[in-house]
Design a protein around this nucleic acid. Structure first.
Length: 310
DNA sequence: GTGATTTGACCGGT
DNA sequence: ACCGGTCAAATCAC
């Protein structure tokens, strides 16, 4: 059920990604070592940018094999490469096969004192289009699609299901990449680390790097099956443990705090990004309380965690 | 009135 | 035939 690419293609892809991730790791190491010293903000930003670039490339390869040539590194710094969503045809690729859409799972735990609605906010506006009882599951699964599907042809969807064993846990399956204007504002559909607002900038930098390197390394491990990267010095941020799982690749990694896509300013695939937290305005409110999701508002689920402030 | 949600029906894959 | 995913009419909320 996985790769559609034939063996050769896949091997080639793995190799490319591996190389890119290795490069990214090196930059991350450099950045990490600079954090302790009095290096310039500029230099750190440069390194962070390089790291982003490697993730961007890797993810692009994974999601759209063969398109790497079209990836613009400039997209990382400022504008969204997909902001020109009208003319070029990312849609064709995405639409061509539902199965080929990138897909990943996030498990979100509700924290006491934090509403479900806030806990689950991912920065995008979603519209519910169905709910279904799933065989063997206690709770029904909710189906959501991007609010801008009609107006902007955005194909992103997600499914939300409450865990059987632990009702405080929600499994969210995302499919497709946002091609709508939200993508530019809200950043990555792939969740990104959110930091607590009272951390120092350096601490934030370090954690972001840790997170992204950790993610990258696990992917790297998947390819090489030998490494384990422990960059582990983060204080506990476990208000919301989140597991992100890139299903197609069987990768999982655990983040130590809530994720939010509010951070990424630029590109769909950016893991870290700038800090535009500007809240995405959501249009809905709701209060359906019959639903097993209780007052879960997919449009606002994560909001309370703010994002990555600078 | 407009836009979001609910829910039973329908469709396609296995 | 079964099941997950989507559609679309009815309903609800603002």
């Amino acid at each position: 059920m996985e790769r559609k690419a034939d063996g050769g293609e896949w091997e080639k892809m793995k190799k490319e990604i591996s190389e890119i991730m290795t490069e990214g790791r090196d930059y991350a190491h450099q950045l990490k070592s600079q954090l302790g010293s009095a290096s310039s903000q500029e230099s750190r930003e440069h390194l962070a940018k390089k790291i982003l670039e490697s993730y961007h490339k890797s993810l692009t390869i994974m999601n759209h094999p063969g398109e790497l040539d079209q990836v613009s590194p400039h997209s990382l710094g400022g504008g969204s490469p997909k902001s020109d969503d009208s003319d070029q045809e990312p849609h064709q690729i995405i639409k061509s096969s539902k199965k080929s859409m990138p897909r990943w799972t996030q498990k979100v735990r509700i924290s006491p004192g934090v509403g479900i609605d806030r806990t689950l906010d991912d920065g995008f506006s979603w519209r519910k289009y169905g709910q279904k009882d799933i065989l063997g599951a206690k709770f029904p699964r909710g189906y959501y699609r991007c609010t801008y599907r009609k107006s902007q042809g955005c194909e992103a969807t997600k499914q939300v299901q409450r865990s059987d064993e632990n009702p405080m846990l929600f499994e969210i399956i995302y499919r497709g990449i946002h091609s709508c204007s939200q993508a530019a504002n809200a950043g990555s559909p792939i969740p990104v680390q959110v930091l607590e607002p009272n951390k120092t900038q350096e601490h934030k930098d370090l954690e972001i790097v840790k997170e992204s390197v950790d993610i990258g390394y696990r992917y790297h491990n998947y390819n090489h099956q030998t490494l384990d990267y422990p960059l582990s010095s983060t204080p506990n941020l476990e208000s919301n443990n989140v597991m992100l799982q890139l299903r197609d690749q069987n990768i999982d990694f655990f983040g130590s705090t809530s994720f939010s896509s509010d951070l990424g300013a630029n590109v769909n695939y950016d893991f870290l990004a700038s800090h535009d937290v500007g809240s995405v305005s959501h249009s809905t409110s709701n209060s359906p309380s019959e639903s097993p999701f209780e007052s879960y508002d997919p449009n606002n689920p994560f909001g309370g965690f703010g994002g990555f402030y600078s």
